[in-house]
Simulated assay, not measured.
Amino acid sequence: MALEALHIRDFRNIAGQDWELAPGLNVLEGENAQGKTNFLEAVYYLANGRSFRGSESENLIRFGRERAELKAAWSHEGLEHRLAMRLTPQGREVEFQGKTIVRLAPVQASLRVLVFTPDSAMLFRSPPQARRRYFDHAIAVQRPGYASLLSRYQRILRQRNQVLERGGPPELLASFDRQWAEGALALMRERGAYLEALRGPWARRFQDLLGETVDLNWHWAGPLCERGALDLEGLLETLEGVRAEERRRGLTLLGPQRDDLAATLGG
């Protein structure tokens, strides 16, 4: 994906600006509080339909204006794409390829944006949930199908938890066990593959910063990972081992929803 053009009108402190981006690396330079981060926020919003700052859409409209407007053009796999968004206090309107859409899935299949800001340096000091959320989004940017995989697992997890919480019959719980195991295994493999793909580039970045070779080790850790279950039958067997405790607590105790990133640098 190569973002080629961006139009911003009445977004944050940007009254009106059109950008044409060059192929490859683009550098945005300027004084503080001039709109550099707002520019990045606009790009992120176009791809994800939300702000990485956690702001509501109505707060993104420039003070004193009734609406904001964002447009983008990009190429992906030889095809030209056009996106337009209009933000008002009542909501937003989205047009993709000249047609009104509600869900952004068609956009995210080709416009993939991941942001890294100074606040992202807190990633390793944040709660595990923040790390899972960040890496889940990063994987989805690289592999659009991952978002659907994650959504399906979360739905199955909610349903399974409801059965446990209500003390549902064993046969009903068993119907969710295999679905849970299939989803959990798929997520764990995707997350593991993503970390492995990053290991080399991250190690080289650390080496550039420190001026010496570093030993970077990281992996996903959690109740399920610690039990060493590596295949579908292993997951189901491990799940059986905690069934009584799950019944008592009314909650699924294993799975990628409880994992955290464990990382060491230089041992």
Rank of each mutant, 00 (worst) to 15 (best):
residue 64 G to T: 04
residue 48 N to M: 15
residue 265 L to P: 04
residue 94 V to K: 08
residue 11 F to C: 07
residue 211 G to Y: 12
residue 224 L to E: 01
residue 98 G to E: 04
residue 217 N to C: 09
residue 164 L to W: 00
residue 261 L to P: 01
residue 242 V to Q: 09
residue 260 D to W: 02
residue 260 D to I: 01
residue 62 R to E: 07
residue 78 G to M: 02
residue 234 G to S: 07
residue 251 L to V: 15
residue 62 R to H: 08
residue 155 R to W: 05
residue 233 E to A: 11
residue 71 K to I: 06
residue 255 G to C: 00
residue 139 I to M: 00
residue 246 E to N: 04
residue 18 D to R: 14
residue 59 N to S: 15
residue 64 G to K: 06
residue 104 L to R: 15
residue 189 R to V: 12
residue 144 P to W: 03
residue 267 G to T: 10
residue 211 G to E: 08
residue 234 G to W: 02
residue 146 Y to H: 13
residue 217 N to Q: 15
residue 118 P to N: 12
residue 188 M to Q: 13
residue 223 P to T: 14
residue 115 V to C: 14
residue 21 L to Q: 04
residue 99 K to E: 14
residue 130 A to Y: 08
residue 63 F to I: 14
residue 189 R to I: 13
residue 244 A to N: 06
residue 149 L to K: 00
residue 21 L to C: 03
residue 252 T to F: 06
residue 105 A to E: 09
residue 175 S to F: 04
residue 13 N to K: 10
residue 87 L to K: 08
residue 92 R to M: 07
residue 45 Y to Q: 03
residue 74 W to N: 05
residue 130 A to Q: 12
residue 255 G to N: 00
residue 48 N to I: 07
residue 211 G to T: 14
residue 201 P to R: 02
residue 135 F to Y: 01
residue 86 R to N: 10
residue 225 C to T: 10
residue 227 R to A: 04
residue 62 R to F: 06
residue 246 E to P: 06
residue 45 Y to E: 02
residue 210 L to Y: 14
residue 203 A to W: 04
residue 43 V to F: 06
residue 191 R to I: 04
residue 118 P to A: 09
residue 226 E to Y: 03
residue 74 W to R: 02
residue 35 G to Y: 04
residue 14 I to D: 03
residue 19 W to E: 08
residue 222 G to K: 01
residue 112 R to H: 01
residue 100 T to L: 12
residue 47 A to W: 03
residue 21 L to F: 11
residue 105 A to S: 13
residue 258 R to A: 00
residue 95 E to S: 13
residue 99 K to Y: 02
residue 216 L to E: 03
residue 106 P to D: 00
residue 99 K to I: 08
residue 122 M to K: 08
residue 253 L to N: 11
residue 159 Q to C: 04
residue 13 N to F: 05
residue 110 S to N: 10
residue 102 V to C: 12
residue 72 A to T: 07
residue 187 L to F: 00
residue 128 P to A: 12
residue 41 E to G: 01
residue 75 S to A: 11
residue 241 G to M: 07
residue 137 H to S: 02
residue 256 P to M: 04
residue 20 E to I: 15
residue 75 S to V: 07
residue 118 P to Y: 12
residue 143 R to S: 08
residue 108 Q to C: 06
residue 38 N to Y: 08
residue 75 S to F: 10
residue 130 A to E: 14
residue 46 L to S: 03
residue 59 N to P: 07
residue 129 Q to G: 03
residue 209 L to S: 09
residue 197 A to F: 10
residue 60 L to Y: 04
residue 84 A to E: 15
residue 232 L to M: 13
residue 256 P to W: 01
residue 135 F to D: 00
residue 44 Y to P: 01
residue 181 A to I: 07
residue 142 Q to T: 10
residue 107 V to K: 06
residue 87 L to G: 09
residue 46 L to W: 02
residue 105 A to Q: 11
residue 149 L to S: 05
residue 80 E to W: 12
residue 194 Y to A: 02
residue 213 T to K: 13
residue 189 R to D: 12
residue 219 H to G: 12
residue 136 D to K: 07
residue 232 L to G: 13
residue 198 L to K: 09
residue 77 E to P: 09
residue 194 Y to P: 06
residue 190 E to M: 13
residue 147 A to S: 09
residue 74 W to K: 03
residue 78 G to W: 04
residue 95 E to Q: 14
residue 111 L to Q: 02
residue 10 D to G: 07
residue 44 Y to C: 05
residue 126 S to V: 06
residue 48 N to D: 10
residue 103 R to V: 11
residue 30 G to E: 09
residue 238 T to K: 03
residue 134 Y to F: 15
residue 62 R to T: 10
residue 160 R to F: 06
